[in-house]
Design a protein around this nucleic acid. Sequence first.
RNA 1: GCCCAGGUGGCGGAAUGGUAUACGCGAAGGACUUAAAAUCCUUUGUUCGCAAGGACUUGUGGGUUCGAGUCCCACCCUGGGCACCA
Length: 792
Amino acid sequence: MKNYPFRKIEKKWTAFWLKKKVFQPDLKKAKNPFYNLMMFPYPSAEGLHVGNMYAFTGSDIYGRFKRMQGCDVFEPIGLDGFGIHSENYAIKIGAHPMKQAKKTEKNFYRQLQMIGNGFAWDNRLQTYDPEYYRWTQWIFTELFKAGLAFRKKSPVNWCPSCKTVLADEQVISGKCERCDSEVVKKDLEQWFFKTTKYAGKLLDNLDKLDWSEKVKIAQKNWIGRSEGALIKFSVSGLKSPISVFTTRPDTILGATYLVLAPESAVIQSLRKKIKNWEEVEKYIAKSAGKSEAERISEEREKTGVELKGVKAINPSNNMEIPIWVSDYVVAGYGTGAIMAVPAYDERDFAFSEKFGLPVVKAPLIPKDQAIKQTKAKRTTEYRLRDWLISRQRYWGPPIPLVYCGHCAEALNNLGPKRAKAKGWSKGEIENPGWIPVKEKNLPVVLPFVKDFRPTGSGSSPLASVKSFYETPCPRCGETGHRETDVSDTFLDSAWYFLRYPSVTDKKRAFDPKLTKKWLPVDMYLGGAEHAVLHLLYSRFLTMALKDLGYLDFEEPFATFHAHGLLLRNGAKISKSKGNVINPDDYIKKFGADAFRMHLMFLGPLEEGGDFRDAGIVGITRLLDRVWNFVIHFKPRKKKNLSPWLHASIKKITKNLSDLRYNVAIAELMIIMNKFSEHPDEVSKQDLETFVLMLAPFTPFLSEEIWLILGNKPSVHSKPWPSYEESGIESGSFELVIQVNGRVRDRVEVESGIEAKEAEKIALGRPKVRAFLKGSKPIRVIFVEGRLINIVV
RNA sequence: GCCCAGGUGGCGGAAUGGUAUACGCGAAGGACUUAAAAUCCUUUGUUCGCAAGGACUUGUGGGUUCGAGUCCCACCCUGGGCACCA
């Protein structure tokens, strides 16, 4: 038995496919478009991670399956090369990210070529390419003009190690998503995208999406809808009352004090009345300096200070109640103020215990009445925050806005109404002095800056490049000052799937005709870790672009499936554990086909798998057997498909649709085992059917043996084998005979036999008689084509 | 604490309420070989038995059912997500 010559074969077909553009659909003429998307990688200089290959292979198999089912499959790939990840790596090795990007790009595309995916190479894109980020910036200006991008000073997440602010979604359990450092709160003025505007839609649409359930649930929790009411508590001597948000207006009789978040503006307005102001101020300052982790690490031991000298009135019973400040109340949620009901809320109870406050178990009153009585307003609150989009870093698309003092003044003189009439955009009016760069002047090119490292000063390295920031105002032409922050990498990846079909379009971000034809994405496969990052941002951006009239759909991904985590010997794969797998080594040693198939055989794609080197020989054995069987194959007279194969086709087809590739591979092994047992009974059609079903898993080998069998390439554009239900039925089956639910005997019988006949056969069997011991059956259950159960 | 997913041989894992342990790895024995590798054949859940055959077995304990890995209840464990969001 020979080993199949994978090196030769893989080289040969890579060149052939490229030359013939087998996997490059005609995007304009395609009749049956199917957009098969996988999450594009962040290219690190270490090269393609085995986890990437696991995900890409899983996605590619599906794409190949759909292609054989008659779809024009579009399977693009690109590089998400802008951002902190690439930049931090460049810093580490002392290279410049701009130069480093070119190197990693070459290496990545080399590797992506090797793994045997059917990529549409003509449509690849890189987020750091000015031809790409030109349109990322255009999206920014469009959102800005529509009032969906705005500047705001607020306490934001700051990563001291990455020296930049981060979005809420990028803080994982109080730590930076990229470097794992503890994130602190800083009061800074930053750019945001108004994701909260779409909170309701982002949540409601989830029910309509065909997505992995766990991802939908993660998004649901992250958006976090709460139905409740705003209740006003008046404060003596204060004009405006304190408004609190509660989901439990029915508990209001038990509200014995109010609590304000330390950042609450209400505290400042009460300043003159507060007798212990110094103490209060000290507390506010102390909690401002705390990191998220610190607040949590104190084991939720409650802290706080009473605002002495001020009292609020509970509108339900007109009782005077004290007001406290405590950091257990979150500033950015609701109104940043709560009514504390220690009798019905654990957290309030803990606070009361600590400070000796009364716990009044007052009766509950019906919600509606409570709302009426207190003249409260029903509202819905979301946990979701606006997307903090600016970054004080170098390696990203410059935010395409210019600050102009003259325009700020002009706007002030005009007033908002006249400004609007004169054609000032919503964004310009709401963010005085900020003017978007005109479309024709995009991209704002990221200049080459020698010292690109983050400064830590709260501004990006671009802030020290005069030739960059000094620029004429796009509106009035006077000297303006460019925004020197760049945008979040996640903005690049929030729209890349829109760009793929239109990569060659120099005039628009995306061609309307191509977009209509190919989008939304038909099948998206990627990691569940992006549930509230990339997947949420993409949905937001699609909704925003739809409202701006650029798209006619509001959900970007019709179907999304999350693949599981690839482990190694039961442990997570990480550099620190030293168990990193380099796909290059395995491809060199076993071939891309064997490596692909091995990865897919480890377990169900959506559940992940445990990579063990030992197991790969099982796959190479199979492929060697297939190879030798084909090269020695001499078809006998028999031409038709063997009847037993119908059931196999059915199983494999179903398993591919369900992404249960491991089971499909097992079935392919069973077919090969049967071929080996009775080689003389294998018809040419049998073998070809097998090769067709093998093709999505082992594209190179399959193409070669397809040719050896006398067919023209490419096997990958041939129709998927069909089966007939009638072909699955055979003349007989094995009847299982149970006595009291336990299997006692089995016997081959004619298919289609009926209950009475089966009973007669069963009762005639000596084994069954032995178990019956002469007693008569009280009940007989017959399952057609399967079993008979005799109950005594 | 809350919300998901899961717990099946030595290991990865199969199983529309109907033959549990498919397929693969590993292991043991044999064939070929001077020998080894490769390959091929046989065996391989536990246990009692010389055997025929029996008993037990899908995290634990209950339940529904003629029949439960699968459905229901309670609990234990593992992995993931959220975490003072009122």
